[in-house]
């Protein structure tokens, strides 16, 4: 074996070693990071949050439901409850668990961080929607008040998180709960999705996979114990009542509810024109604002002008300017095609 061969071999081994250490998601470093997490403080805070959620939604809360929600044994749950009691955050007796006002404001603080952080992830980063919750679960136990307020200021002190939930203010104010569950709607009734519960994760990801999001308009077709059938932005959708329960709807805010099947900007072929109807709610924050700044608001005439080599991005003609957009944006802009209008 000559020297070059040997060196090459060593080099390849070395690269392999680096790869095993740093490989995305499956590398040793990542595995190590994931393994250390979860301690007492985290559990206490998660329990508080859960208790608050129960109270807010008027659902009775028991030791078992706590254990189930936090994924711990009933014994540990009892331990945690007594700890919370000792800390003066919780009033408990045989029948009910009730947060004290300190407990409430503590819980609201955690919720504030969680929702703010989700909002931040949704607006400012391009993290996948399914990962927001997990990331926020970690961060909510770590940020100090000061850091939280700074974060809030940086993203324009939002009052709603990306799921449509109100974000408590730094003083712990939060509006009364509004709306009802999706499966409680009457056939023919129209409403706007105002909230999608992000726990448990399995259900949430199913909802996301259906393409449903807060702000979407729905019209109920039928709802019974077996299935909930409804129309969302013109597309028919069927969910099990269990899943539908995770969706909260409220009255329609817009003046003109949108009916019928909608075309998206991405469906325009080069040379075709359309009139913008609106931008999907799932396009948020800065990205949404930038589109509107560029003149893409309801009523704008828009024409597909130029396709790039792989068909994405596409350049559109808007108000005398040419603007290139990626598909993940153009498929969230609704319009009617020009000839259909006539």
């Amino acid at each position: 074996m000559n020297e070059a061969m040997l060196l090459l071999f060593i080099g390849i081994l070395f690269l392999l070693f680096i790869a095993i250490l740093f490989y995305p998601e499956k590398g040793l470093l990542e595995i190590f990071k994931k393994s250390r997490y979860a301690n007492q403080k985290v559990l206490l805070e998660d329990a508080l949050k859960f208790l608050y959620d129960c109270e807010y939604n008027n659902i009775p809360c028991t030791l078992n439901s706590i254990a189930g929600n936090l994924n711990i044994s009933a014994d540990t749950a009892a331990e945690i409850v007594s700890k919370l009691q000792n800390m003066g955050l919780l009033n408990a007796n045989r029948d009910f668990l009730l947060l004290t006002s300190e407990g409430k404001s503590y819980a609201l603080r955690i919720i504030r961080v969680h929702r703010l952080y989700e909002k931040f992830l949704a607006d400012e980063t391009s993290m996948n929607e399914k990962e927001w919750h997990k990331a926020a679960e970690e961060v909510e136990h770590k940020l100090s008040d000061e850091e939280v307020n700074k974060l809030a200021a940086q993203i324009g002190n939002p009052v709603f998180d990306p799921h449509g939930d109100p974000i408590p203010t730094s003083k712990g104010e939060i509006p009364e709960k509004a709306g009802k569950h999706l499966n409680e709607m009457e056939p023919g009734e129209m409403a706007t999705i105002i909230h999608i519960e992000d726990e448990p994760h399995t259900i949430y990801s199913q909802i996301v996979a259906e393409g449903l999001y807060a702000g979407m308009q729905v019209r109920m077709i039928e709802s019974n114990e077996k299935r909930v059938k409804f129309e969302a932005n013109g597309e028919e959708c069927i969910l099990s009542p269990l899943i539908a329960k995770s969706i909260t709807v409220g009255p329609i805010k817009l003046e003109k509810p949108v009916e019928g099947k909608l075309k998206t900007l991405s469906s325009l072929k080069v040379g075709e024109k359309g009139i913008v109807l609106g931008i999907a709610k799932s396009l948020r924050g800065q990205q949404r604002r930038r589109l509107m700044d560029l003149g893409i608001v309801p009523g704008t005439e828009i024409e597909a002008e130029l396709e790039s080599i792989s068909g994405d991005p596409v350049a559109y003609r808007v108000r005398g300017t040419t603007v290139a957009l990626r598909k993940n944006q153009s498929e969230k802009i609704y319009l009617v095609k020009e000839e259909e209008k006539n």
């Binding site: 993203i155 324009g156 924050g285 800065q286 604002r289 930038r290 509107m292 700044d293 560029l294």
Partner: peptide, 8 residues
């Protein structure tokens, strides 16, 4: 700038 109302 495109707008004063944006946060970019």
């Amino acid at each position: 700038t495109y707008s004063l109302l944006s946060t970019s």
